[in-house]
Design a binder for these strands. Structure first.
Lengths: 235, 235
DNA sequence: CAAGTATTTATCCAACGGGTTAATTTCCTC
DNA sequence: GAGGAAATTAACCCGTTGGATAAATACTTG
């Protein structure tokens, strides 16, 4: 026995530590905002010491910016993997909406972080050259898809890609980001599975109807054998 | 000397005081969120004492809820004044969008408060029976207008009023609420007069095109004549 | 394995922030 | 005009919080 191996009090893992801190911080900032976030809670959740957080990332605001930049990196990475170029224009737009919807659903912290940053009037984003250089590929994707759609006759109008991008994001973002207050106002759960399906149908229908000019063909379309209540025609 | 003029150190004004506190609190909560808001700043801005705020309204959270309820009351009141029943369906929808846009533009604090409350997962709203009882008249307005539009042939699809309401709000809300980050991302000022005009045109075009099924007739509309919406003409 | 460096821990603290207590001033009423 | 209620002020309390210090422990390198 003797002096062979001492039980380690802790092990080194700078990279893992940093990742754990960032992950914990993301949750904390998303759940409580910048001012409401607590450095101690972040440290605790990351199984770290509060000092570690200053050591590896910097102060609270640096940490927040790092989280924000990470969030943008993540969505940009997923966006880049979406290939819409080879699809028929209406199908491409549908996919785009579905992706946006799905991404927001899978990453609610992203919505919260954006809201937090907008409350701060993008004060931190403005300082981040990193984020400024990360352009979304969607604007150009939309531009080419819309042009193709107009050329092929699928679409009857050449809409501004930036406006359409913002509209699609907005249709999904507002519903999800504000689902808590909207659910109270309307007295029903907007996040139930049925409600989510219904919302996706509505968004796709709205945008495609506007682009193609064939409302009825698209809008009324019932989806899978899902229980589809007559939400449309209520006397 | 004697009792010449009794110089008052302060005058009583309970109602005014309360209103000033609420107005100051609205600004503070809108600018900094719930956790970021400072009770001292509210008191100072209201030309009041911090103690007054507890005396007249209650603690920080009570104050916040009071502000939130006031914000809902205000928008509901303006919504009620909007009469769309006598308009042709497409014109009614256009007016609805213009009102929503204009209201959000004129009341940026409302957007910020909603975001703040959603960050708190509507924790306070849920407790407010007052807000729960303040239903927006828009849902029913939309229902009748859409039904009329379908009957008259103006609209080709009977869309769910709640979905349409959320979509219209979302198109405007997301653009304005997130204008700070979006402006950074796109590298242009989304709040310039031109940008705002363009956005309103886009929103109206998108929704009306979807409802009427006549994209080209509506979307491409010239926007050269700077005819800014009457309702947005406040400034 | 010795010395130096990187990482982690335990502890502390000054400033801050919400909330309270108690005293002061104005208003109301009889 | 006196007495009491309402409104306002000033000063203080005390837990919290971001951040700092210094010491301890693991790893690297020569």
């Amino acid at each position: 026995m003797a002096k062979t191996k001492k039980t380690l009090k802790w092990q080194r893992d700078p990279e893992g530590m940093r990742l754990r801190i960032l992950a914990a911080a993301k949750q904390e900032f998303a759940n409580h905002g910048l001012a409401g976030a607590r450095v101690d809670r972040i440290a605790a959740k990351a199984d770290a010491n509060k000092r570690m957080l200053y050591y590896h990332v910097g102060n609270k605001e640096d940490l927040y910016l790092a989280v924000l930049e990470g969030a943008y990196e993540k969505i940009r990475a997923e966006e880049r993997e979406l290939d819409l170029e080879h699809l028929a224009p209406p199908e491409a737009i549908r996919r785009l909406i579905e992706f946006t919807w799905s991404y927001f659903l899978r990453n609610p912290e992203f919505l919260a972080l954006l809201n937090t940053e907008n409350l701060a009037r993008a004060k931190h984003l403005k300082r981040s050259t990193k984020v400024k250089s990360m352009h979304s590929p969607f604007v150009e994707m939309i531009r080419t898809v819309v042009n193709r759609g107009v050329a092929s006759g699928d679409f009857s109008v050449a809409v501004d890609p930036v406006q359409l991008y913002i509209s699609i994001a907005g249709l999904a973002f507002f519903y999800l980001s504000n689902s808590a207050t909207l659910s109270v106002i309307f007295g029903r759960d907007l996040l139930s599975e049925d409600a989510k399906d219904e919302r996706l149908d509505h968004m796709v229908g709205l945008v495609l109807a506007a682009l193609t000019g064939k409302s009825s063909a698209i809008f009324g379309r019932s989806r899978s054998p899902k229980r589809r209540v007559a939400v449309a025609q209520t006397a």
